[in-house]
Design a protein around this nucleic acid. Structure first.
Length: 491
RNA sequence: GGGCCGUUAGCUCAACCAGGCAGAGCACCUGACUCUUAAUCAGUAGGUUGAAGGUUCGAUUCCUUCACGGCCCA
């Protein structure tokens, strides 16, 4: 039995009393004719002249009960909203009222009746029939303070959703964000596709994968860290505009910005460049923000952020000089940069690449300061193993990252379609891995083979949907926008 | 991985600093009440104080270890 509790024991006793009187505690034959929203709309349409003899059949969870002996007010809620009902013994009958007296906050009831206006002016359902639809055994959290403890909110998200309307709003907005993304791409002739979650070679990103095992094939597989290499195979296959919205899995720490599984939007467009994608991204965010919040100006953690129009674009080195405050003379010299870093007590893992040092300094000195949407371009080739080299400067790539509110939101680039170039980049990564870089990319011969059949020039981009959801719901932690964030099991 | 903070009734929180019968509101239970809306009134009940150990005559309180969580840093 449950270690709790008096309250639950009393509920169970009440349940068995109802059962003894042949009351079905969990019937499934109640037919609903209207939602709360339908009710409100009907009142509105009648211009508030609706009568008590109209008939609505509604159902929902009772969120509050005010009992007055032979009559009671209840508030009940369905998916469209909350409404009040008036339950009178002389209307629903002695027997039904006796059952009603045994019901609790949290139970589901079905109600039939017309509507009237109370003395205080609130439209209210006058029930002529009340039926128990589902009995709750456990009591809901307290009605005024709700459920606050973050651990309880995440572990029992259903209670969080019942009690906290702002939490419901967040997940409704999250759904709308994804809906807006779909509409945006479908309107532009993109095809939505799904590629493997389980991959024999985890590719497309620098990250540690989760390993799983397929029994029948007798082989280990990796949960994908990115869909990238499969999506580009589809570009080879002739799908010139594609997008995928799906989960990626990365076996790394959990923080306010990281959940081990997270939702990624990736899209690819043939005959486009990274510049085209920056333009497209501006359009998309403007559209999303308007669809979800009604405006392109949003507030995030007390910052006003304007997602409309054109955004700042600057190179990585320019950002490091002007925002990071690094002397331009240092940026070509790894040793001097490392000295500079340690003088600022920024720890950098040992690396042979100047690009990695620059990237780390950027993360610490620049990223948190990029509040308004900003595209950073000109990423070094050694930290961009899938990006096309710049035609004029082969040290750099045609790549950008997008930062908003101090978060990395997107990463995009013109794609490598020269199989030899790609192969050499992979070989370099393999060398790095052998030298101890556990996050370096693996060689993917099968992908090289696909490129050898010819991939049209293309550009692709990934956008972290959870980060976007945080932004548009003003959430400080990724756990606030993931329905069931990962938690450790309790002892 | 490190630092700080938290874990007490179904829920939200007191009591801890300075050790001495563990408390309140809501929810629950009993009773009254046919226009309430954080309803009201009267009464009752509800606790392995996250776990284990230590100090003490006595530990929710002090100490140690562990578990889980939050924030910050890496």
């Amino acid at each position: 039995m449950d270690k709790t509790s008096d309250t639950i024991e009393k509920r169970r006793k009440k349940l068995s009393e109802l059962k003894d009187n042949d009351i079905n505690l969990f019937p499934n034959d109640f037919i609903v004719s209207h939602t709360v929203k339908d009710l409100r709309d009907a009142i509105e349409e009648s211009q508030h002249s609706i009568k008590e003899d109209a008939v609505f059949i509604v159902a929902g969870r009772m969120m509050a009960i005010n009992r007055f002996g032979k009559a009671s007010f209840i508030r009940f809620r369905d998916r469209t909203g909350q409404f009040q009902a008036y339950i009178r013994k002389d209307k629903i009958g002695d027997q039904a009222y006796d059952i009603f007296k045994k019901l609790d906050i949290g139970d589901f009831v079905g109600l039939r009746g017309g509507v009237f206006k109370t003395r205080t002016g609130e439209w209210t359902l006058m029930a002529d029939e009340l039926k128990l639809i589902t009995k709750a055994i456990r009591p809901l959290p307290e009605k005024f303070h709700g459920l606050k403890d973050p651990e309880k909110r995440y572990r029992r998200r259903y209670l969080d959703l019942i009690m906290n309307s702002n939490v419901r709003e967040i997940f409704i907005k999250r759904s709308r964000i994804i809906q807006a993304v779909r509409t945006f791409f479908l309107d532009r002739d993109f095809l939505e596709v799904e590629t493997p979650m389980m991959q024999p070679i985890p590719g497309g990103a620098e990250a540690t994968p989760f390993i799983t095992h397929h029994n029948a094939l007798g082989m280990d597989l990796f949960l994908r860290i990115a869909p990238e290499l499969y999506l580009k195979r589809l570009v080879v296959g002739g799908f010139e505009r594609i997008f995928e919205i799906n989960r990626n899995f990365r076996n790394e720490g959990i923080s306010t910005k990281h959940n081990p599984e997270f939702t990624m939007l990736e899209f690819y467009q043939a005959y486009a460049t990274h510049n085209d994608l920056m333009n497209l991204t501006e359009e998309m965010f403007g559209y999303m923000a308007r669809e979800v919040t009604g405006s392109t100006e949003i507030t995030y953690q007390n910052n006003t952020i304007d997602l409309g129009g054109k955004w700042n674009r600057m190179t990585l080195t320019y950002a490091l000089e002007t925002i990071g405050g690094i002397d331009p003379g240092l940026l070509k010299d790894k040793e001097k940069l490392l000295e500079f870093a340690s003088s600022k007590s920024i720890k950098i893992t040992k690396t042979k690449y100047l690009g990695k040092v620059i990237s780390k300094l950027f993360d610490v000195l620049v990223e948190p300061k990029l509040i308004q949407p900003t595209f950073i371009t000109g990423y070094p080739v050694e930290i961009s193993p899938l990006s096309r080299k710049n035609e004029k400067n082969s040290e750099l790539t045609d790549r950008f990252e997008l930062f908003i509110a101090g978060h990395e939101i997107a990463n995009g680039f013109s794609e490598i379609n020269d199989p030899e170039d790609q192969k050499n980049r992979f070989l370099q990564q393999v060398e790095d891995r052998e030298a101890g870089d556990e996050e370096a990319h693996f060689m993917d011969e099968d992908y090289i083979e696909a490129l050898e059949y010819g991939m049209p020039p293309a550009a692709g981009e990934g956008i972290g949907i959870d980060r976007v959801a945080m932004l548009l719901t003003d959430s400080a932690s990724i756990r606030e926008v993931v329905l069931f964030p990962h938690m450790k099991s309790k002892g």
